[in-house]
Design a protein around this nucleic acid. Sequence first.
DNA 1: AGCCAATCAGGTACGCTGTTCGCAACGGAC
DNA 2: GTCCGTTGCGAACAGCGTACCTGATTGGCT
Lengths: 233, 233
Amino acid sequence: MADEPALVWAKERRSPRRQAPSVEQIVRTAIAIADAEGLPALSMRRVAADLGSGTASLYRYVASRDELLDLMIDEVKGAEHTELTGDWRADLASVAHQVRATLLRHPWLSGEIPGRPALGTNSLRRHEAALAAAAPLTGDITFAAGVVDVVLAYVFGTVTQELAELQAQRRSGLTKEQWQASVGPYIREVIESGEYPQFARRVIEGEDRTAEEVFAFGLTVVLDGIAARAPRS
Amino acid sequence: MADEPALVWAKERRSPRRQAPSVEQIVRTAIAIADAEGLPALSMRRVAADLGSGTASLYRYVASRDELLDLMIDEVKGAEHTELTGDWRADLASVAHQVRATLLRHPWLSGEIPGRPALGTNSLRRHEAALAAAAPLTGDITFAAGVVDVVLAYVFGTVTQELAELQAQRRSGLTKEQWQASVGPYIREVIESGEYPQFARRVIEGEDRTAEEVFAFGLTVVLDGIAARAPRS
DNA sequence: AGCCAATCAGGTACGCTGTTCGCAACGGAC
DNA sequence: GTCCGTTGCGAACAGCGTACCTGATTGGCT
């Protein structure tokens, strides 16, 4: 007992061991980190630190970082909910807007969805709701499935484009102004080269639409297309 | 000179120094690795090894791994080319099919596009071509831009869905059969729970369409929608 | 009440990553 | 022949995901 410190009562006591994090807490903490600081900041060590637990402990509740991401995705989708009215057009639009909102709220989401089949409980619930929204349109389930796929594909695609610049900006660590200042001259150069006349027109003549307007326009186009192909309009 | 090894001629000679890789070679090697073994296998060390050069040397030609990915994306887009016929519908469809083909040929692509604004030379060239394809439809550049955005968003979205399962399978390292065997029971369970009636119908009753058919259907829907909204059909 | 077996948090360590530093060797200019 | 800018790259660093194993904690049985 020679190496026992003299002041026993001043000895640093371990903090109580039992502070089991639980999967739910882990997932929520991870989402908070990713939302606030981006995916690169999301490390197992960081999650453990924010939870005040040891890094290795996380692996009792989550098999791997990859599995954690799967759980995060499904968790985030669980926040969506749509009341169906029976009007397929309104209902599909509603689903589309909700999916867009979710993707925008969690900018890391669109980058992680590719490569992961959406088979989580909440993903399936969303898919079920989308199919139900399309149901009044037709009794043909294959057609309904096709319709849902087109709408969801469009939403995911546009929002990804919408987020691209924002994400790059964030990754670079620059402010919006600095970013625009660094990209501006390059764009000007491209336009002045004369090799991209349509692109130049788009930048110079094109009206500035808000992201919402762009989204709504595309959605209208897609829904019009669906209406045009539906068995009976 | 005391610590000079005795057998001077047996001393290991450095291999010839000059084997400069050049950016193009680096990018091509990186694409080859990512195509063959997936993105996780793409490390700077690995690229250097395949090139027979030192790892640190790469940084003379490429600022970071991230920049390398940007270059890979633009390189890969450079392979696309479309002859325009003046028929907007056929031309947009052609562009769409080409983009799909590129995304399928390089499965890592769809996961890396989110978060990166497409400002590379080849990306711009593709965008220019798409705008030119839509030009006969309207003189309104804002409308043309909207049209192009919808089409490209749809293509990116569907192909991402199409690739999801394939990618997950690849990541898991399982064969197709093993994968299906592991997913099958879960799906069955979900269906038998009775909580997802539409989804169940889709899986059981729905006709099996090939990916090409699904893609073509959605594309038709989108193009129909465009036609419906065009100033004059 | 007392003990033991099962449970579980988490320190430590391994192998990997992207990236930087600084040196060594080369090629051209004078 | 001697310098000097350029270029390849070995070594090292910080940080990552994660496997292993120790030691504390607990609930249940005696």
